[in-house]
Design a protein around this nucleic acid. Sequence first.
DNA 1: TATAAGGTCTGTATGGACTACAGGCTCAAG
DNA 2: CTTGAGCCTGTAGTCCATACAGACCTTATA
Lengths: 147, 147
Amino acid sequence: MDYRLKRYFNVTAGNPEEGLHRAKLAKHTGCNLETVRYYEKIGMMPDPPRTAAGYRVYNEGHVSRLRFILRARELGFSIEDIRGLLRLVDRGTQTCAEVQQLTEAHLADVRNKIRDLKRIEAVLAATAAQCSGEVVPDCPVLDALAS
Amino acid sequence: MDYRLKRYFNVTAGNPEEGLHRAKLAKHTGCNLETVRYYEKIGMMPDPPRTAAGYRVYNEGHVSRLRFILRARELGFSIEDIRGLLRLVDRGTQTCAEVQQLTEAHLADVRNKIRDLKRIEAVLAATAAQCSGEVVPDCPVLDALAS
DNA sequence: TATAAGGTCTGTATGGACTACAGGCTCAAG
DNA sequence: CTTGAGCCTGTAGTCCATACAGACCTTATA
């Protein structure tokens, strides 16, 4: 399709609101503009279709995938961890056993994170509560994770 | 005290098991050897006392502080977040109101992390359960964090 | 329709948080 | 008193982004 024609369709041939350029994807997800390109480069995000002029065009699928990646990073998952999680989404050739093993490993990791965060939560909540008085309690933050 | 004397006390003057050199601290905490020095440089870890020859000497306090930092990083806290949390430990000059505000902010962050991790946990658990059969379920991992 | 403004492209440079290495000193053992 | 392991410092390299530079595309306005 000629790019002159594409204009009539607001970038993509389909639904107008499904076609996002890079800046809009970034804004929708809270991602840095350049990071979008970076994740594409390292293979975390698929190469998006392009307009005739070479502009990247994203859809809702890209939005949720990118949101997931960003939040998973905030939750302390490494790039490789996230690749593993996304493999559960992108799979096709994997056997069920492989999927299960991967899943169980992530599950253990996630549950440990939850456990430790709850410990921190408890300590912080106690601190905040006691602190409403004049007395600043002795702060056992470090002990929260004293495995 | 002369360092020749210190030998008799296994590096520190006090309890032998309280004096750790850098490699031992690293091994006890699972920290990379060089990272110990790095955290000291950026002020996350206090400058430890030194032997007469200049060797760093750590105690149990250093161990738990470093463990905390490392785990907090794994849980997705930034260096600045952790500085904030540690300020609750290191405080002395802060007012109660400051401590409380800081604590409440961290608390909200922690609770959001827990919420999202639980969502991931639920999806992973479901995946693992279904996957024990022959059928690989449609994988809604991405939807887990579709805020 | 010329042009200015703003969005996008690519490649490259910079920054933060580590991590590894090089060259020299210290220490315990033999 | 030498040898090897461990520690010191400073510096270089890596990973994960983030920012910038110079060129092209698109839209609005004169």
